[in-house]
Design a protein around this nucleic acid. Structure first.
Length: 468
RNA sequence: CGGGACGUGGCGCAGCUUGGUAGCGCACUCGCUUUGGGAGCGAGGGGUCGCAGGUUCAAAUCCUGUCGUCCCGACCA
């Protein structure tokens, strides 16, 4: 296997950058912190959006679109929110060559504008719940940026809902966490997640509670993959989201917001990638199978085209690599960099035997199968690859999670993965202390691994780790 | 913003110490031979050395400033 990347064990951040460059996923944009997502990288994001959008709609949420520019004054209406986001705002000060009377913020998140409109659209409890989502770009000023993981501008999905009661809002916040985010990340991305509640220090600005899903990267650092916030009545009061209740009285709604971003592409890269490049789980892969012409002859070309058509008809996402002017080795390396789960290699030797060579990216193995049985063989190989990526990621997490009793031990253990410690033994003081060593509390769980309803519960378990 | 490293054809680098008008590998173009794990030979194209000042007869090289990139922090999806 050719050594095209800096090995992970040698320099993980360098490896990450190498993969993104060599697999042609993204590169820096001209303005500081901006990024250009290239077709190969964007295809991954498109598949993520398709899978997530389906799950989001399954909850009854509808898509809409709100403005990019938000009047500055909107941000001052919720005290914690403005305090949290003011340092990150990009502000538009001029339009049409003139200075604006009121500055316009480029949205860093849209609770404020959307809140304004939700207030207009809600009159009665019969209008609830109001379940909205938008796919858009947002901008946050960032000190230090890294492709996909933290860029000034990024793509995401932000859901915003209003509910009649606390209970309904709370249940919906958790439904998104479990049925949309965790389900997608585990079943499609094949990355196990820790689900839990965030500590006060890690909570969203203006929220009552923030719930999150976290995954462990192959360098032992955690990545927040998605968050779901229970906003209480904070934003409802700030934006006057009121409705007439069943009792005839006016009540403030209970709102939620939740999002996942292009950061997840970074999570996919670092959660599964190896020294040969990306490893994309088949359930996500924009290209599940690449049919490769090994030798550029008429017979091989015709056979490859036929195989390509058959697999496509079988419902697989297939790419035909029939380039005759690029050496086979180069194309094979490229397929590995881009992480195509399965390759089918067709050459004169295979055809003579009525066979095709099928190569698995995850297992790193090759075998031959009769051409007539390709469709089943490929389907089986894809299923195996999905399962193996999951098994590996789960085993990695298990072997990189340590039970400890004190904050000191947690900081030590967090150098290689998660440290699990009773929240009572850590607490806010312990959290502050750990933060000095760049170790943070990722989530709190109940002892049985379930998600707490609030931070008030006793006997919670804290997961500490270094994080992105 | 604090600490460290670095900006030279698309990418990776050398040249800088000791100023003299830019070179290597890969990529790219053309031709021929090739294609079962990054092909070979031959011929080509492409760079005001991040930017702005300064010193000098002369600056990629020395000085000052500035912008940007990467790593480690603080902030964060």
């Amino acid at each position: 296997m050719a050594n095209v990347l800096t090995p992970q064990g040698e320099d993980f951040p360098r490896w990450y950058q190498d993969v993104i460059a060599k697999a042609q996923l993204a590169e820096n944009g001209p303005a500081k912190g901006s990024q250009v997502i290239r077709p190969t990288g964007f295809a991954l994001w498109e598949r993520m959006t398709a899978e997530l959008d389906e799950r989001i709609k399954e909850t009854g949420t509808e898509n809409a679109s709100f403005p990019l520019l938000i009047p500055e004054s909107y941000f001052t209406r919720e005290a914690d929110h403005v305090e949290g986001f003011a340092p990150e705002l990009w502000m538009v000060t001029h339009g049409g060559g003139k200075e604006l009377e009121e500055k316009l913020a480029i949205r860093p998140t849209s609770e404020t504008v959307i809140g304004e409109y939700m207030a207009k659209w809600i009159n009665s409890y019969r209008d609830l719940p109001l379940l909205l989502n938008q796919w858009c770009n947002v901008m946050r000023y960032e000190m230090r940026t890294r492709l996909f993981l933290r860029s000034s501008e990024f793509l995401w999905q932000e859901g915003h809902t209003v509910h009649e009661t606390y209970e309904d809002a709370h249940a919906f916040t958790l439904r998104i966490l479990h049925e949309v985010y965790a389900d997608f990340i585990e079943n499609v991305l094949a990355l196990p997640v820790l689900r839990g509640i965030k500590t006060e220090a890690e909570r969203f600005a203006g929220a009552l509670n923030t719930f999150a899903v976290e995954s462990l990267m192959r360098d032992g650092k955690a990545l927040q993959m998605g968050t779901s916030h229970e906003l209480g009545q904070n934003f409802a009061k700030a934006f006057d989201i009121q409705f007439q209740g069943r009792d005839g009285q006016q009540h403030h709604g209970w709102t939620t917001s939740w999002g996942v971003s292009t950061r997840m592409v970074g999570g996919l890269i670092m959660g599964h990638g190896d020294d040969a490049g990306l490893r994309v789980p088949p359930n996500l892969a924009p290209v599940q199978v690449s049919v490769m012409v090994v030798k550029d002859t008429d017979e091989v070309q015709a056979a490859a085209k036929k195989v390509y058509d058959e697999l496509k008809d079988a419902g697989l996402r297939v790419k035909l690599d029939n380039r005759g002017d690029v050496a086979f080795g180069r194309r094979a390396v490229d397929a590995e960099l881009k992480g195509y789960p399965v390759r089918i290699e067709l050459g004169p030797r295979d055809l003579k035997n009525g066979e095709a060579t099928i190569a698995s990216r995850v297992e790193g193995t090759k075998r031959t199968v009769p051409i007539g049985m390709l469709a089943e063989a490929v389907a089986a190989a894809l299923e195996e690859a999905q399962q193996q990526l999951w098994d590996e990621a789960l085993a990695f997490r298990e072997s990189h999670t340590a039970d400890v009793a004190t904050v000191e031990e947690a900081v030590e253990a967090a150098q290689t993965g998660y440290a699990r410690v009773p929240w009572d033994a850590c607490g806010v003081e312990g959290e502050t202390k750990a933060a000095q060593s760049s170790v943070t509390v990722r989530v709190l769980q109940r002892e049985d691994g379930s998600v707490p309803d609030s931070l008030d519960e006793s006997g919670l378990i804290a997961y500490l780790a270094r994080s992105y």
